[in-house]
Every structure is written in C-alpha cells, then in structure tokens.
Amino acid sequence: MKTESRLEKVLNAGHFAVTGELGPPKSSDIETLKHHAEAMRNHVESYNITDNQTAIVRTSSIGVAASLIQMGLEPNVQMTVRDRNRICLQSDLLGAVSFGVKNFLCLQGDHAKFGNQPQSKNVNDLDSMQLLKTFKDMRDEGIFIGGEKMDHPLPSIFLGAVANPFADPFEYRPLRLAKKIAAGAQFIQTQCIFDIDRFERWMAKVRELGLHKKCYIMGGVTPIKSIGAARYMQKNVSGMIVPEELITRIKGAEDKKKEGIKIAVETIQRLREIEGVAGVHVMAIAWEEVVPEIVESAGLYPRPTV
C-alpha cells in the first residue's frame, strides 16, 4: 500500500531525495520556524520536526506538524520513546495520522540528562526498535501492542528510523540497520556525516548485506557554521565524529561560513556517488536559511515533480 507521502513518492520514483529539519522553539511562538519552512518549501520533500531534541522542552513535534500541514507542507514527525509510554505513543500516532501526518521517524532519544529537565523520569517503556515494529503492526495488521484489533485499520504511513555509522561497535552497526528494516523501517536517515570514509566503509557492508535494496538510505548532512559549532559537535554531541582535518580546513578559510557550506555541498556530491544512498537529510539547525543555497549548489534544484 502506498501513501500519499511526497517523500515516499520521490524515493519510489528513483529520485535522489532531500529532506530538511526544523527544531521547534522553547515557546509556543513558531513564526520563525514557519518562516524557515517557507524559505525551503521548494527545496525539500518534507521536514523532520524534532521531538524535544537533546531532551530540552520545546513545542511538540506533532503540534508543529499540524501547522506545517496547514501550510501545505509535509512533516516527518520524529517520535522518541524517552518521554512517552506505549499508551501515549500509539495514541499520538493515531492523533497525528488523523490530521494528515504520513511520515514518522522512530527514535530512542537522547538521555534526559542532557537537557533542561535532568531530574525527569526517562520513560523508555519501549525501545526504538519496538516502536518501529509497533507502528508497522498498527499499519499492516491493524493491531495494538498485545494484539487487540484497532477499530479501523490505520491508513498507510511511511516509516523511518535512524542509523549511526559513527557509533560503536562499528561492525555491529550494519546488522542493527538490518534489524531496523525487519522491524519496519522503510527509510533511514543517518547521523551527520563528517567522516565520509567511515560512512563509505559502513555503506560497503550495507550493500554486502543487500540492505540498500530493502530501504531508502538518506545521508545526514550538516553545514558547519563555525569552529565553535564544530568543536561542540566533536566534544559534546553523543555519537558524532568530527575529524580534526575538517576543523583545520575551516580554520584556514578566509570566509569560514562559506567554507562550511562548501564542505556540506561537497559531502552531498560525494554521497550521490555512493551506490545505495537514496538521498540526503540536511540538518541545518539554527542555520536553516542556508538550506536553499546548499541544495541549489549541490545540483539538486529544482526538485522533481511526482
């Protein structure tokens, strides 16, 4: 069963897909976010809406998704298992589908320790794998966890998950991807790619297992805004590898921001050459305005009509 998801249609048609990312603010005023969404309307298929990223309280992903749909844009609702138990996760899926969300990204979520509510209870009733399988079963079997039949089957949804080639144990990571596909992942977005050699080694194994034919793999790309931002990701963001050479290169550049954009564009171009990479997920959190330039410079504009 096919959804009306633009992201799914673009990927199914064999086009190299582009998704963007929007981080909701620490207030209910989402005007700036809407402005950013509008600015990349013609440059991305759909937008990830982060779910209280890094465990900081923000406007909910589903709430922002409602606004995006009103604007005629397509959200990829991120859902972590950190803050909601299985009752709430299944209920929120139904709620989001009821107003037209088609794409969901199932995540574990950063530990609450990293956020602004470190005293909170980490829920983790399900894990990210179980969340994927739960949503798949709700869609394909029409059942809730435990086997109870839903009143009506769920309309088709497009299920995504994340993969991190930069986490350890490295040799296990492709096997973990296989497991996520078995659990229901139809598309994958990876952690930000700065160490492209390691990413290529991971992809080689992914191809060996034939996984690139079982799901769409989108490479995560983040433009580096400053040396400080690079250092922050290198030292403080879990599961990231930012090679020192990259920082040296930006340091040596006259226009550091321009260099950051250039590196992102080069990364996309290199990703396009790798067999089995079906698209890119551009995460320019707190630098959303450069997304159109990156997409255009990478030769991915205009986006295909499907």
């Binding site: 950190r82 574990q108 979520g109 950063d110 530990h111 320790k113 990293f114 980490n122 983790n124 894990d127 990210s128 794998m129 179980q130 994340v162 993969a163 991190n164 930069f166 986490a167 350890d168 144990p169 296990y172 973990r176 497991k179 659990a183 952690q191 879990s238 599961g239």
Partner: peptide, 20 residues
Amino acid sequence: CSKSMLNGPCGGSQDGKCEV
C-alpha cells in the same frame, strides 16, 4: 543500559562507553 533498551545499542554508544 541507561535507556533500558532490549534490542541493541543506541546511537550514543562510542568507544564502549555510554552517552550518559
């Protein structure tokens, strides 16, 4: 596991250490 996961390590596992 800091997240009580049952299906393998999350993306925050590096060099054998937990993201926490």
